[in-house]
Protein backbone atom coordinates (compact mmCIF):
# COMPACT_ATOMS: atom_id res chain seq x y z
CA UNK A 1 0.00 0.00 0.00
CA UNK A 2 1.59 3.18 -1.14
CA UNK A 3 -0.60 5.47 0.89
CA UNK A 4 0.78 7.43 3.81
CA UNK A 5 -0.96 6.45 7.00
CA UNK A 6 -1.24 8.48 10.14
CA UNK A 7 -2.34 5.47 12.11
CA UNK A 8 -2.17 1.83 11.19
CA UNK A 9 -3.61 -0.66 13.63
CA UNK A 10 -2.79 -4.28 12.90
CA UNK A 11 -4.26 -7.35 14.53
CA UNK A 12 -5.01 -5.58 17.82
CA UNK A 13 -5.98 -7.99 20.59
CA UNK A 14 -7.04 -6.79 24.02
CA UNK A 15 -8.26 -8.99 26.81
CA UNK A 16 -9.63 -8.60 30.28
CA UNK A 17 -7.35 -10.38 32.71
CA UNK A 18 -9.21 -12.12 35.50
CA UNK A 19 -7.71 -14.21 38.27
CA UNK A 20 -7.90 -17.49 36.42
CA UNK A 21 -8.95 -16.62 32.90
CA UNK A 22 -8.65 -13.88 30.40
CA UNK A 23 -11.64 -12.75 28.39
CA UNK A 24 -11.10 -11.39 24.89
CA UNK A 25 -12.54 -7.90 24.44
CA UNK A 26 -10.96 -6.79 21.18
CA UNK A 27 -10.01 -9.61 18.81
CA UNK A 28 -7.77 -8.87 15.90
CA UNK A 29 -8.86 -5.41 14.88
CA UNK A 30 -7.24 -3.87 11.78
CA UNK A 31 -7.81 -0.38 10.52
CA UNK A 32 -5.88 2.56 9.25
CA UNK A 33 -6.39 6.26 8.99
CA UNK A 34 -4.98 8.78 6.54
CA UNK A 35 -3.96 12.26 7.67
CA UNK A 36 -6.84 14.72 7.78
CA UNK A 37 -9.53 12.04 7.49
CA UNK A 38 -12.35 11.12 9.85
CA UNK A 39 -12.95 7.48 10.70
CA UNK A 40 -16.23 6.52 12.33
CA UNK A 41 -16.14 3.56 14.67
CA UNK A 42 -19.63 2.20 15.20
CA UNK A 43 -21.09 -0.55 17.31
CA UNK A 44 -23.39 -1.41 20.18
CA UNK A 45 -22.44 -0.82 23.80
CA UNK A 46 -19.75 -3.20 24.93
CA UNK A 47 -18.50 -4.09 21.46
CA UNK A 48 -15.01 -2.80 22.23
CA UNK A 49 -15.08 0.62 20.56
CA UNK A 50 -14.06 2.55 23.65
CA UNK A 51 -11.49 -0.04 24.68
CA UNK A 52 -9.92 0.21 21.23
CA UNK A 53 -9.83 3.99 21.59
CA UNK A 54 -8.29 3.91 25.07
CA UNK A 55 -5.65 1.46 23.90
CA UNK A 56 -4.49 3.91 21.22
CA UNK A 57 -3.31 6.17 24.05
CA UNK A 58 -2.39 3.34 26.41
CA UNK A 59 -4.82 4.54 29.04
CA UNK A 60 -6.67 1.25 29.46
CA UNK A 61 -7.83 0.35 32.97
CA UNK A 62 -5.23 -1.92 34.55
CA UNK A 63 -7.30 -5.09 34.16
CA UNK A 64 -7.23 -4.73 30.39
CA UNK A 65 -4.08 -5.81 28.55
CA UNK A 66 -2.96 -5.49 24.96
CA UNK A 67 -2.13 -9.11 24.16
CA UNK A 68 -0.97 -8.76 20.60
CA UNK A 69 -0.85 -6.43 17.65
CA UNK A 70 0.68 -3.20 16.47
CA UNK A 71 -0.46 0.40 16.70
CA UNK A 72 1.77 2.19 14.22
CA UNK A 73 1.57 5.93 14.67
CA UNK A 74 3.12 8.39 12.24
CA UNK A 75 2.11 11.63 13.84
CA UNK A 76 5.50 12.99 14.82
CA UNK A 77 6.72 15.86 12.77
CA UNK A 78 10.02 14.08 12.22
CA UNK A 79 8.14 11.36 10.38
CA UNK A 80 9.36 8.53 12.58
CA UNK A 81 6.84 5.72 13.06
CA UNK A 82 6.19 4.58 16.63
CA UNK A 83 4.54 1.34 17.67
CA UNK A 84 2.37 2.59 20.51
CA UNK A 85 1.52 -0.97 21.54
CA UNK A 86 5.18 -1.50 22.48
CA UNK A 87 5.57 1.63 24.61
CA UNK A 88 5.59 1.48 28.39
CA UNK A 89 2.18 2.74 29.57
CA UNK A 90 3.80 4.86 32.27
CA UNK A 91 6.84 5.88 30.26
CA UNK A 92 7.86 9.30 29.04
CA UNK A 93 7.41 8.48 25.34
CA UNK A 94 3.71 7.78 25.62
CA UNK A 95 3.21 10.78 27.92
CA UNK A 96 4.55 13.02 25.18
CA UNK A 97 2.12 11.53 22.70
CA UNK A 98 -0.87 11.83 25.05
CA UNK A 99 -2.38 15.26 24.75
CA UNK A 100 0.46 16.32 22.48
CA UNK A 101 0.15 14.16 19.35
CA UNK A 102 -3.04 12.23 20.12
CA UNK A 103 -5.76 13.61 22.30
CA UNK A 104 -9.17 12.49 23.33
CA UNK A 105 -12.63 13.88 23.93
CA UNK A 106 -14.61 11.85 26.42
CA UNK A 107 -18.20 10.85 26.64
CA UNK A 108 -19.22 12.60 29.83
CA UNK A 109 -17.95 16.16 29.93
CA UNK A 110 -19.38 16.58 33.45
CA UNK A 111 -17.11 13.98 34.99
CA UNK A 112 -14.07 14.48 32.77
CA UNK A 113 -12.85 17.60 34.54
CA UNK A 114 -11.58 17.64 38.09
CA UNK A 115 -14.12 19.52 40.22
CA UNK A 116 -11.36 21.01 42.36
CA UNK A 117 -9.46 22.86 39.65
CA UNK A 118 -10.52 25.64 37.33
CA UNK A 119 -11.15 24.90 33.67
CA UNK A 120 -8.24 27.18 32.81
CA UNK A 121 -5.89 25.35 35.13
CA UNK A 122 -6.69 22.01 33.50
CA UNK A 123 -6.16 23.26 29.95
CA UNK A 124 -3.10 25.37 30.75
CA UNK A 125 -1.53 22.33 32.38
CA UNK A 126 -1.62 20.40 29.10
CA UNK A 127 -0.09 23.30 27.18
CA UNK A 128 2.65 23.77 29.76
CA UNK A 129 3.53 20.10 29.71
CA UNK A 130 3.82 19.77 25.95
CA UNK A 131 4.84 23.17 24.73
CA UNK A 132 6.97 24.20 27.69
CA UNK A 133 5.49 27.68 27.53
CA UNK A 134 5.32 30.15 30.39
CA UNK A 135 2.12 30.33 32.32
CA UNK A 136 0.95 33.71 31.02
CA UNK A 137 1.44 32.65 27.42
CA UNK A 138 -0.31 29.33 28.02
CA UNK A 139 -3.22 31.24 29.50
CA UNK A 140 -3.51 33.44 26.41
CA UNK A 141 -3.48 30.34 24.19
CA UNK A 142 -6.19 28.82 26.38
CA UNK A 143 -8.40 31.90 26.17
CA UNK A 144 -8.08 31.91 22.39
CA UNK A 145 -8.91 28.22 22.19
CA UNK A 146 -11.97 28.64 24.39
CA UNK A 147 -13.13 31.47 22.16
CA UNK A 148 -12.66 29.28 19.10
CA UNK A 149 -14.62 26.56 20.81
CA UNK A 150 -17.50 28.97 21.13
CA UNK A 151 -17.28 30.01 24.77
CA UNK A 152 -18.28 33.66 24.79
CA UNK A 153 -16.65 35.10 27.91
CA UNK A 154 -13.47 33.08 27.60
CA UNK A 155 -11.32 35.38 29.71
CA UNK A 156 -13.70 34.89 32.60
CA UNK A 157 -14.31 31.22 31.89
CA UNK A 158 -10.69 30.18 32.51
CA UNK A 159 -11.11 31.17 36.14
CA UNK A 160 -14.27 29.21 36.64
CA UNK A 161 -14.85 25.73 38.01
CA UNK A 162 -16.49 22.85 36.12
CA UNK A 163 -19.60 22.94 38.32
CA UNK A 164 -20.30 26.45 37.08
CA UNK A 165 -20.51 25.20 33.47
CA UNK A 166 -23.29 23.42 31.61
CA UNK A 167 -22.65 20.08 29.91
CA UNK A 168 -22.44 21.67 26.47
CA UNK A 169 -20.00 24.34 27.70
CA UNK A 170 -17.83 21.68 29.31
CA UNK A 171 -17.77 19.68 26.09
CA UNK A 172 -16.61 22.83 24.28
CA UNK A 173 -13.92 23.28 26.92
CA UNK A 174 -12.87 19.66 26.47
CA UNK A 175 -12.59 20.16 22.72
CA UNK A 176 -10.43 23.22 23.39
CA UNK A 177 -8.27 21.16 25.75
CA UNK A 178 -7.95 18.34 23.21
CA UNK A 179 -6.89 20.69 20.43
CA UNK A 180 -4.59 22.79 22.63
CA UNK A 181 -1.36 21.22 21.36
CA UNK A 182 -2.33 20.73 17.71
CA UNK A 183 -2.51 16.95 17.86
CA UNK A 184 -2.37 14.96 14.62
CA UNK A 185 -5.09 12.64 15.88
CA UNK A 186 -8.19 13.37 17.88
CA UNK A 187 -10.18 10.52 19.35
CA UNK A 188 -13.76 11.46 20.11
CA UNK A 189 -15.44 8.81 22.24
CA UNK A 190 -19.17 9.42 21.93
CA UNK A 191 -18.66 13.15 22.39
CA UNK A 192 -22.34 14.01 22.09
CA UNK A 193 -24.02 11.08 23.81
CA UNK A 194 -24.49 12.89 27.12
CA UNK A 195 -25.79 16.10 25.56
CA UNK A 196 -29.17 17.43 24.45
CA UNK A 197 -30.00 16.99 20.78
CA UNK A 198 -29.76 20.72 20.02
CA UNK A 199 -26.39 20.96 21.72
CA UNK A 200 -25.31 17.80 19.87
CA UNK A 201 -25.68 19.52 16.53
CA UNK A 202 -23.70 22.54 17.74
CA UNK A 203 -20.88 20.39 19.04
CA UNK A 204 -20.72 18.33 15.84
CA UNK A 205 -20.56 21.49 13.73
CA UNK A 206 -17.87 22.87 15.98
CA UNK A 207 -15.82 19.70 15.68
CA UNK A 208 -16.14 19.69 11.90
CA UNK A 209 -15.12 23.34 11.64
CA UNK A 210 -12.13 22.92 13.90
CA UNK A 211 -11.14 19.72 12.12
CA UNK A 212 -10.98 21.66 8.84
CA UNK A 213 -9.07 24.49 10.46
CA UNK A 214 -6.51 22.36 12.29
CA UNK A 215 -6.34 19.53 9.73
CA UNK A 216 -6.59 16.99 12.53
CA UNK A 217 -7.57 13.41 11.83
CA UNK A 218 -10.43 12.16 13.92
CA UNK A 219 -11.52 8.77 15.11
CA UNK A 220 -15.15 9.33 15.86
CA UNK A 221 -16.73 6.70 18.07
CA UNK A 222 -20.47 6.43 18.33
CA UNK A 223 -23.36 4.04 18.45
CA UNK A 224 -25.35 6.55 16.45
CA UNK A 225 -25.03 5.84 12.75
CA UNK A 226 -26.78 9.09 11.89
CA UNK A 227 -24.14 11.16 13.66
CA UNK A 228 -21.32 9.11 12.17
CA UNK A 229 -22.81 9.53 8.69
CA UNK A 230 -22.49 13.31 9.06
CA UNK A 231 -18.96 13.28 10.36
CA UNK A 232 -16.97 10.42 8.89
CA UNK A 233 -15.15 9.83 5.62
CA UNK A 234 -14.86 6.16 6.41
CA UNK A 235 -16.81 3.90 8.72
CA UNK A 236 -15.85 0.73 10.54
CA UNK A 237 -18.61 -1.38 12.07
CA UNK A 238 -17.61 -3.32 15.19
CA UNK A 239 -19.37 -6.25 16.74
CA UNK A 240 -18.08 -8.10 19.79
CA UNK A 241 -14.52 -6.91 19.44
CA UNK A 242 -14.20 -7.43 15.71
CA UNK A 243 -14.57 -5.18 12.73
CA UNK A 244 -17.21 -6.85 10.54
CA UNK A 245 -17.37 -4.21 7.83
CA UNK A 246 -15.33 -1.22 6.87
CA UNK A 247 -15.50 1.20 3.99
CA UNK A 248 -16.17 4.70 2.69
CA UNK A 249 -19.17 6.23 4.45
CA UNK A 250 -21.22 6.46 1.26
CA UNK A 251 -20.75 2.76 0.49
CA UNK A 252 -21.62 1.68 4.01
CA UNK A 253 -24.85 3.67 3.97
CA UNK A 254 -25.87 2.98 0.36
CA UNK A 255 -24.72 -0.60 -0.15
CA UNK A 256 -24.18 -2.16 3.25
CA UNK A 257 -22.94 -5.72 2.92
CA UNK A 258 -22.72 -7.34 6.31
CA UNK A 259 -26.06 -8.58 7.70
CA UNK A 260 -25.26 -6.78 10.97
CA UNK A 261 -24.69 -3.45 9.20
CA UNK A 262 -27.91 -3.89 7.23
CA UNK A 263 -29.81 -4.57 10.45
CA UNK A 264 -28.21 -1.58 12.20
CA UNK A 265 -29.28 0.72 9.38
CA UNK A 266 -32.80 -0.69 9.52
CA UNK A 267 -32.96 0.15 13.20
CA UNK A 268 -32.44 3.88 12.67
CA UNK A 269 -35.62 5.87 13.08
CA UNK A 270 -36.15 8.26 10.16
CA UNK A 271 -38.46 11.26 10.23
CA UNK A 272 -39.65 10.59 6.68
CA UNK A 273 -40.90 7.20 7.69
CA UNK A 274 -43.44 8.53 10.14
CA UNK A 275 -46.07 8.57 7.41
CA UNK A 276 -45.48 5.01 6.27
CA UNK A 277 -45.90 3.92 9.88
CA UNK A 278 -43.10 1.50 9.18
CA UNK A 279 -42.15 -0.34 12.32
CA UNK A 280 -38.52 -0.11 13.35
CA UNK A 281 -36.82 -3.44 12.98
CA UNK A 282 -34.97 -4.40 16.12
CA UNK A 283 -32.11 -6.83 15.75
CA UNK A 284 -33.22 -10.25 16.92
CA UNK A 285 -31.74 -11.50 20.19
CA UNK A 286 -29.13 -9.76 22.30
CA UNK A 287 -25.36 -9.44 22.19
CA UNK A 288 -23.98 -12.66 23.70
CA UNK A 289 -22.10 -12.21 26.98
CA UNK A 290 -18.35 -11.79 27.04
CA UNK A 291 -17.98 -15.25 28.54
CA UNK A 292 -19.72 -17.16 25.78
CA UNK A 293 -18.52 -15.93 22.46
CA UNK A 294 -20.22 -17.97 19.72
CA UNK A 295 -17.83 -20.10 17.66
CA UNK A 296 -17.22 -19.12 14.06
CA UNK A 297 -18.84 -15.89 12.99
CA UNK A 298 -19.76 -14.11 16.22
CA UNK A 299 -22.98 -12.78 14.70
CA UNK A 300 -24.31 -16.13 13.44
CA UNK A 301 -26.86 -16.75 16.20
CA UNK A 302 -28.62 -13.46 15.46
CA UNK A 303 -28.23 -13.57 11.70
CA UNK A 304 -31.12 -14.26 9.31
CA UNK A 305 -28.76 -15.55 6.63
CA UNK A 306 -27.14 -18.10 8.93
CA UNK A 307 -25.70 -21.05 7.01
CA UNK A 308 -25.29 -24.09 9.20
CA UNK A 309 -21.89 -25.72 9.05
CA UNK A 310 -20.25 -22.67 7.49
CA UNK A 311 -21.00 -19.69 9.68
CA UNK A 312 -20.29 -21.55 12.94
CA UNK A 313 -16.97 -22.98 11.80
CA UNK A 314 -14.50 -20.09 11.82
CA UNK A 315 -14.57 -16.32 11.68
CA UNK A 316 -14.54 -15.15 8.04
CA UNK A 317 -11.71 -12.95 6.80
CA UNK A 318 -12.26 -9.34 5.82
CA UNK A 319 -12.65 -9.35 2.05
CA UNK A 320 -12.43 -6.36 -0.26
CA UNK A 321 -15.78 -6.00 -2.08
CA UNK A 322 -15.09 -2.79 -3.93
CA UNK A 323 -12.37 -0.20 -3.52
CA UNK A 324 -11.61 0.11 0.19
CA UNK A 325 -14.86 -1.56 1.15
CA UNK A 326 -14.19 -4.64 3.26
CA UNK A 327 -16.63 -7.10 4.76
CA UNK A 328 -16.22 -10.23 6.87
CA UNK A 329 -19.09 -12.52 5.90
CA UNK A 330 -19.42 -15.96 4.24
CA UNK A 331 -22.25 -14.66 2.07
CA UNK A 332 -19.62 -12.97 -0.06
CA UNK A 333 -16.94 -15.65 0.10
CA UNK A 334 -17.52 -16.60 -3.53
CA UNK A 335 -17.12 -12.95 -4.55
CA UNK A 336 -19.62 -12.95 -7.39
CA UNK A 337 -22.58 -13.98 -5.19
CA UNK A 338 -23.99 -10.58 -4.37
CA UNK A 339 -26.66 -9.88 -1.75
Amino acid sequence: MGKKYLLNVKNLNISWRLDKASVPIVCGVDFSLEPGKVLGLVGESGCGKSVTALSLMRILPKELKIEDGEILFNGHNGGKTVDIAKLKPKGEDIQKIRGGRISMIFQEPMSSFSPLHTIGNQIIEVIEIHKKTARGEAEEITINLLKKAGIADARDAVKRYPFEFSGGMLQRAMIAKALSCNPSLLIADEPTTALDVTIQAQILNLMRDLQREFGTSIIFISHDLGVVGQMADEVAIMYMGKIVERGPTKNIFKTPKHPYTIKLLDAIPRLGNLEDRRRLEPIRGTVPGLFNRPPGCIFHDRCDSYMSGICDSAFPDLREMSENHFVACYLYEKGEMDQ
Partner: peptide, 26 residues
Amino acid sequence: NKMYVTAARAGGVPEFRLLMKYPVRM
Protein backbone atom coordinates in the same frame (compact mmCIF):
# COMPACT_ATOMS: atom_id res chain seq x y z
CA ASN B 1 -11.15 4.99 38.60
CA LYS B 2 -12.96 8.26 37.99
CA MET B 3 -13.25 9.69 34.52
CA TYR B 4 -11.38 12.90 35.29
CA VAL B 5 -8.26 10.91 36.19
CA THR B 6 -8.28 9.13 32.84
CA ALA B 7 -8.97 12.44 31.13
CA ALA B 8 -6.01 14.11 32.84
CA ARG B 9 -3.82 11.12 31.96
CA ALA B 10 -4.95 11.48 28.36
CA GLY B 11 -3.60 15.03 28.52
CA GLY B 12 -0.12 13.66 29.13
CA VAL B 13 0.23 14.55 32.82
CA PRO B 14 3.08 12.50 34.35
CA GLU B 15 1.84 9.77 36.72
CA PHE B 16 3.08 11.08 40.06
CA ARG B 17 1.95 14.63 39.47
CA LEU B 18 -1.36 13.27 38.20
CA LEU B 19 -1.86 11.17 41.34
CA MET B 20 -1.08 14.03 43.73
CA LYS B 21 -2.91 16.78 41.90
CA TYR B 22 -6.19 15.05 41.15
CA PRO B 23 -7.32 11.88 42.98
CA VAL B 24 -5.30 12.42 46.16
CA ARG B 25 -6.67 15.92 46.58
CA MET B 26 -10.18 14.61 46.15
